[in-house]
Design a protein around this nucleic acid. Structure first.
Lengths: 190, 190
DNA sequence: AATAAATGAGTGAACGCTCACATCGATTAT
DNA sequence: ATAATCGATGTGAGCGTTCACTCATTTATT
């Protein structure tokens, strides 16, 4: 067993995360990460097989954990509007607590999404499931689930992106209710 | 004067665009581009100063051209809802005509947006201008312009992203009216 | 003393870019 | 008409640098 738990591994992972977000994954070198963590280059390879594996672990761990948290939460609420409110509120909290991690998940999608197997649960699949159920129960008008999910997802996500770029000053959590209201107007249709 | 106009330059630019979208900018080598275009590596440097300049030219040319087209269009319509409909319709057409170019603008943002000066007109600034005007004229309820713009932008953009990933089968243009309706519900509020 | 953790110089491959040279079509001189 | 000349264009081996990764050695912990 490791003497100090996973302290060094966690430090490397967090340092890498921040550099990846600031400079991009490919543009961040292993030397950069080690130097920023105050460690030698070789140390990284004691904890990760490769730079690619580090980037992937950072992505898929948090990506699926977030999806599962959303799913767990969604099951505790009813009807659709309450499910949506709970999920959006959770998303806002997640973002406010760790904007850098959010930035990484967004950034890494382009590279890492290819490695995501179809049976993996993601935030998108949870959202689609919930919307499809809402349509089946006639809580919202029937329509294309994928289109509806894209609209709602984009609406929320882009506000977070603007916040990440400091185009918006409030915390996301303060906007949670406004986001739910807007999403509901989109889904409820006419 | 060039013998064959800019045929080679255009070929290189287009080839680079497609590789950039498929593999990422950093992951695409100058050798890759030249080989895919059926040319030698040195030829690229007859037409572009560097790989970076090529990536930037590809980005900013199309990025600003699209923003200016949106602005030109917006001025021809009134009130806000018609402006919005015209802009969204134009966006859908743009996407349907060249999804790869759209994919590049989306992908390159992370890297290239830092080089965009604040005085450059972008699709975002046009949208914000139009929404601010609509609020001033009381066509829609007053509120945070940035938040409203983010919501509308994300709603439309994410549907395009889903289409780019083949999660949606219809052409974007077929969804144009549904997008306008959804955006209007978001903006019109309660 | 034994073992796990950390080190950093070293390695080979890959990269962006250069440059001396070849090719071609157009222009000018004969 | 023909030849000589020229600049624009294309070529690809080669250069210097950087990168991810390795491994013999040192350091820290029990």
């Amino acid at each position: 067993m490791a003497r100090n738990g996973n302290k060094t591994k966690k430090l490397l992972a967090r340092t890498a995360l921040e550099l990846f977000v600031r400079k991009g994954i490919t543009e961040t070198t292993v030397r950069d990460i080690a130097a920023a963590a105050g460690l030698a280059e070789g140390t990284l390879y004691r904890h990760f097989d490769s730079k690619d594996e580090l980037a992937w672990e950072l992505f898929h761990t948090n990506y699926t954990a977030f999806a599962q948290e959303l799913d767990r939460l969604q099951q505790q609420y009813d009807p659709l509007k309450d499910k949506l409110a709970a999920m959006i509120s959770q998303f806002c909290t997640f973002f406010d607590q760790d904007p850098v991690l959010f930035g990484y998940l967004l950034l890494a999608q382009h590279t890492q999404l290819k490695k995501v197997t179809p049976e993996m649960e993601t935030a998108v699949t949870v959202l689609q499931k919930v919307i499809a159920q809402g349509m089946a129960r006639r809580e919202i008008p029937a329509g294309e689930v994928e289109v509806a999910a894209a609209m709602v997802l984009g609406l929320v996500l882009q506000v977070a992106v603007f916040k990440a770029y400091n185009r918006i000053t409030q915390d996301l959590s303060e906007l949670s209710e406004a986001l739910v209201a807007a999403c509901w107007r989109v889904l409820a249709g006419d």
